[in-house]
Amino acid sequence: MLTTPKYKVQLCCGTMCYIMGGAELHLLIEALPDQLKDKVSIEGIPCIGKCDTNEKLHPCVLINGEELNNASTQKIIKQLLTLDNNDVL
């Protein structure tokens, strides 16, 4: 059965995000719980420019277009689960 992924996770692949922990996020697919498997698409995107500010925001991730700063695998999964659990359709 083919399903269209509901959630789009975009990992910023600018070097700053990448070396500040972003590289780990490329293993996200392996960490997804069963509930989320087949519902998530993961892709790398070019730098989204968050590293220009003085604040430490990296690594940055977009989930369905919404920014998640200082992302970690667990933070992304938590956010996805929240979205998925609130999705009553």
Partner: peptide, 17 residues
């Protein structure tokens, strides 16, 4: 590698472009 990565990041060298 770490120092090279820091050089890329600090000098804003976008590897893919």
């Amino acid at each position: 590698t770490e120092e090279l990565g820091a050089l890329f990041a600090a000098l804003k060298i976008d590897l893919e472009t």
